[in-house]
Design a protein around this nucleic acid. Structure first.
Lengths: 237, 237
DNA sequence: TGCGCTCATATTGCATACATAAGCTCAAAG
DNA sequence: CTTTGAGCTTATGTATGCAATATGAGCGCA
């Protein structure tokens, strides 16, 4: 079953890690909400879909578990994470802290090439924002996260960059779960404002913009649904 | 070969994950410098030492790779990480950022029980500091890291706590590699000062103490040794 | 009817076997 | 004497088989 080629996954020059490809595919699916929180990710099933053995699948699932997108219980298997409202708050509290530092460092290191890359990225974000349909919205959310990952890369700290990768992925899941408006991520062109502040070297303003931005995202969440979601969790478990 | 029992590992109520036990044992060995950076961690060899199959070992090695204590190259195997001076700087830059946030949050949440636990811990640290011998120094370094992990736990953010786990482990490796004085971690009773500031609710002072503390640790490193270590890297690879 | 128990089934945990790539030895040629 | 390459050796990547455990059905009993 060559379902692997159907999975939006290239698998092309596949001499490289298939486990990583599977991880990416699953991550996309989770972040895009195609896989609902609580969904069981059976090793055999995933393996059949990608035409690999359980060994490789286990490897991919373990990576996702480290990122927090999947949780696994011994002798029970792996499931798509179902972050609680408290988890969501912690994700954004962490982002406030880390992205503040990233902005400060990125402001010092920003090159003209970086600015150009950011501009291109913002244009792409706008394109997706202008388009309609679920596919465009998917792309928009992904691009929105990529902005923050780009910023982390500019900051030049590989560790913080890794942390941001994880936080962005978790954020996407949280937004998918608790997001109210469709275009939850960046209705305010916050990214453009942040870039502008960074260009002028105004670190304080860039930091403030970043905090506002994160605030916007979090404000769009509906984290007060406690009861029904707790019930849902119970059902999923 | 019941070498597993020799490995300072309990393996006692071993119905739980052996992979995790192996990971912990390897982590301790790496952090304690019993395993030199660059050392190859052969799956078969580790498996023989712990009397488990390669499957379990791979799982443990993968976890360590995620933590950054081990790096693995495809078709070549896993090796103890050999962080560069730049890596070391990034570790401490990350710690400055994250521990600042942790201190602020911990100050708000600190309970009397927490204070008591910290006091007990500081006494233990002092005991180790007073003792002589490599074993005591090992224990001291470990206890020093545990202080920061305890603090992260008090802050009540599971994500930041996980990040700190990783950063403390990486720090230990870096200190083992580049530390100048033996008692590199906390010659100044910084931990006591931090706790004191936290107790009085003086967040600014606690933050300042923390930054000083991290500064002390980093100042004790000799990160300017570039050449000889690069050579060593070449030899190890 | 409701509760608990046993057994069947499916899935994971782990070990092992096979496939494949990297490294090494040694020899031969320039 | 150096260097290059073929073949061997060893270790990793992957698949698969077996044992152990959790889930669910069916049945018996209060």
């Amino acid at each position: 079953m060559k379902l692997s080629s159907k999975s939006a996954l290239t698998m092309d020059a596949n001499q490289e890690d298939r486990a990583q490809a599977i991880r990416d595919a699953l991550r996309d699916a989770i972040v895009d909400r195609r896989l609902a929180p609580g969904t069981k990710l059976s090793e055999a099933e995933v393996g059949a879909l990608f035409d690999v053995s359980r060994t490789v699948v286990r490897y991919a699932l373990q990576m996702l578990a480290f990122e927090g997108l999947v949780y696994s219980e011994r002798n029970r298997g792996a499931f798509v994470s179902n972050p609680s409202p408290e988890d969501a708050r912690q994700v954004f509290a962490s982002r406030r802290l880390i992205e503040t530092g990233i902005v400060a460092e990125a402001a010092r290191r920003l090159t003209k090439a970086d600015v150009a890359a950011f501009r291109r990225h913002l244009e792409e974000e706008d394109r997706h924002k202008a388009s309609r349909g679920p596919e465009a919205r998917r792309a928009e959310i992904k691009a929105s996260g990529d902005f923050h990952i780009m910023l982390a890369r500019v900051a030049g700290n590989a560790i913080l960059e890794k942390f941001m990768d994880e936080l962005v992925a978790r954020s996407s899941l949280v937004i998918a779960l608790y997001g109210r408006s469709g275009v939850s991520s960046c209705g305010h062109d916050d990214h453009a404002l942040i870039l502008e502040a960074l260009q002028t070297g105004d670190v304080d303003r860039a930091t403030e913009m970043m905090l506002h931005h994160i605030g916007h995202i979090e404000a769009d969440l509906d984290l007060r649904t406690g009861e029904s979601l707790t019930l849902k969790e119970a059902l999923n478990l």
